[in-house]
Design a protein around this nucleic acid. Structure first.
Lengths: 154, 154
DNA sequence: AGCATACGTAACATATGAAGTTTCATGAGA
DNA sequence: TCTCATGAAACTTCATATGTTACGTATGCT
């Protein structure tokens, strides 16, 4: 199955919003992400419920960041997305009666649990501010320009 | 997305075969796994190519283990399955021009790479013999019986 | 008030891949 | 020769992320 890119996508959106003082419409964001405005709204819905972003209707409306980037981690964002599955593999059954399968599940399950825990730990250790800082570092390294142009096709 | 259970399934099959001196048919294995014989053959195809198992047609035919369980790791089996994707998440694009997305990709990519490496490391550290030993331990702990009955519905 | 803008949501279409199924060919043994 | 079992192709089913259309609703400008 194609890999889920919602976390990647929503982070992209958030960093763009962080560079933009005014509200950004779903359509602007969709253009930057080369996708559909409705997809953006879907991604942002969970974040709005948690108060990480804010949306305004009508003229001059759109999406604004409503949190301190230093206080929100990728784990918070991941949870706001509904905690999509992390691993593409899993055990065949949950609580098998077969002892053979129990042995298999125990071995694989340990590995799976560790991998998931590692990912969540990494997510929790990264703030949006850290991501933004990395972006600005790349920007300075590349052009030294203060222009916030982010090199999208548009 | 439903999680890929091929590794879990094929390990289950192998351990059952290890308890069975005679060849086991796809149909017997399918019954134990509550699935279809063709699914079993698909799973086993890659393992046969690598010489981990052997198949015989006709009367008295079926599948036999053709390797030293102590010499084959879960990583070998994983590779024989064609190295199915491990993570359900990924970056939206591979080599984005957008610096924002580059920053996101770098952060997430590191975490993803680490998680994958952890899984492969764990797979490589576990032999089929270790799994089998764990099974026998569970068997002794549960019944103390030498009966190899593995508690499948049948 | 009336109109344009932009989100909110439902409904539907598309694409991908694992898993399940059917069918037939092939080869091995009784 | 007949039966058993694998090998392989083709098809269906199912789940889910993603894409798209359409319409309702709220906001703000004129």
């Amino acid at each position: 199955m194609r890999r889920d890119s919602r976390l990647s996508g929503v982070l992209h959106v958030l960093l763009h919003m962080a560079e933009h003082p005014d509200p950004m419409t779903s359509e602007m964001l969709a253009r930057a992400m080369d996708t559909n405005p409705v997809v953006i709204r879907r991604l942002m819905g969970g974040l709005r419920e948690r108060g990480f972003v804010q949306s305004e209707k009508g003229h001059g409306g759109g999406w604004t960041i409503a949190c301190d980037l230093r206080a929100v981690t990728l784990l918070d964002i991941y949870e706001a997305l509904g905690q999509p599955g992390l691993l593409a593999m899993g055990n065949r059954t949950e609580a098998p009666g077969c002892l053979v399968e129990q042995a298999v599940n125990a071995a694989l399950g340990d590995a799976f649990d560790e991998a998931e825990a590692l990912l969540l730990r990494r997510f929790g250790a990264l703030t949006l501010a850290a991501l933004s800082a990395d972006f600005h570092e790349r920007l300075a390294r590349r052009g030294g320009s203060t222009d916030l142009e982010t090199n999208h096709a548009a």
